[in-house]
């Protein structure tokens, strides 16, 4: 009996460690691969897949374990699904396919030249993972990142980005850039809040008061990483059918993602 409590404590610690590893690695979301959400998704190959990057959540900034900002699976699967529905309805892009989760450790990401990553403030890579993502971008892949807010998040995002593209220069995307005009002319942009707006009325999170549409370009000036900073497009897609979430946010969020996808398929 004397050993019962220590043994129990050790067991609980082991279980917690395993769970923690699992959470860090995958969050609590489904595994990678194609996933049918509802009857609108066909189990058929397609030209375009809405591919979500599954990455490891790490110890941002090297200052210890951080839970804030969530993992790769936030808003999954509704946000992705809603995006696809709009894409199918409004463009000629062939995408009857199911949702797609692409693991950072899987070379098959090369078959999906467009990827979406969310909550990137806490992403962390091994050298091999960073190299894979770097190759993906260098070969012609396009990465859209979303939902991170304030200076701390930015610093941690850039720490991960620095591993992927060490010499990357981040710049604001000018209004005249083709990415805002290839499908819709998006001349007016504003901060797109997450679902918390419904209860708080705040469009910002943390100290991320000013939204920024930023990017990293390749040597030919083409956008290869589109950065949606101080905004949460994923929530705007996910809650587009909620009567309390303002339509104007969802409308802009959809127009932006459709423009970004079109850009990724034409540039």
């Amino acid at each position: 009996m004397k050993l019962a409590i220590p043994l129990l404590a050790v067991c609980l610690l082991v279980i917690a460690a395993v769970e923690l590893f699992g959470w860090q690695r995958y969050g609590n979301a489904p595994t990678s691969g194609f996933q049918i959400y509802d009857q609108s998704d066909q189990n058929a190959p397609a030209e375009f897949f809405f591919s979500r990057l599954r990455y490891n959540t790490g110890y941002g900034g090297g200052s210890g374990y951080r839970r804030g900002g969530g993992g790769w699976s936030q808003d999954f699967p509704r946000a992705d699904h809603d995006c696809l529905v709009v894409l199918r309805r409004l463009t000629r892009i062939d995408s009857p396919s199911p949702l797609n989760v692409v693991d950072i450790g899987d070379d098959r990401m090369m078959d999906f030249p467009w990827m979406y990553a969310v909550g990137v403030a806490n992403w962390a890579f091994t050298d091999a993972e960073a190299l894979r993502l770097r190759n993906y971008i260098a070969r012609g892949g396009f990465l859209m990142v979303d939902h991170f807010h304030g200076q701390d998040d930015w610093d941690r995002f850039m720490k991960g980005m620095g591993m992927v593209l060490p010499n990357a220069v981040v710049e604001d995307i000018p209004d005249s850039d083709p990415i805002f005009h290839d499908l819709y002319d998006i001349d007016e942009k504003f901060q797109i809040p997450g679902e918390q707006y419904v209860s708080t009325g705040r469009t910002y999170e943390k100290d991320g008061y000013v939204p920024a549409w930023r990017c990293i370009r390749d040597k030919n000036g083409r956008i290869v990483v589109a950065i949606c900073y101080n905004m949460h497009l994923g929530d705007a897609w996910e809650w587009a059918n909620d009567g309390e979430y303002p339509e104007k946010f969802s409308g802009l969020a959809f127009r932006i993602v459709l423009n970004y996808i079109t850009y990724s398929m034409t540039h």
Binding site: E47, F48, T91, R92, I93, D94, P113, G140, N220, I261, T262, S264, M265, T266, H267
Partner: peptide, 16 residues
């Protein structure tokens, strides 16, 4: 091209 597709993008890049 009748629709945005990867081949279109990569042909344009090839000739860049």
């Amino acid at each position: 091209e009748g629709e945005p597709r990867w081949e279109y993008k990569f042909i344009r890049r090839a000739l860049e």
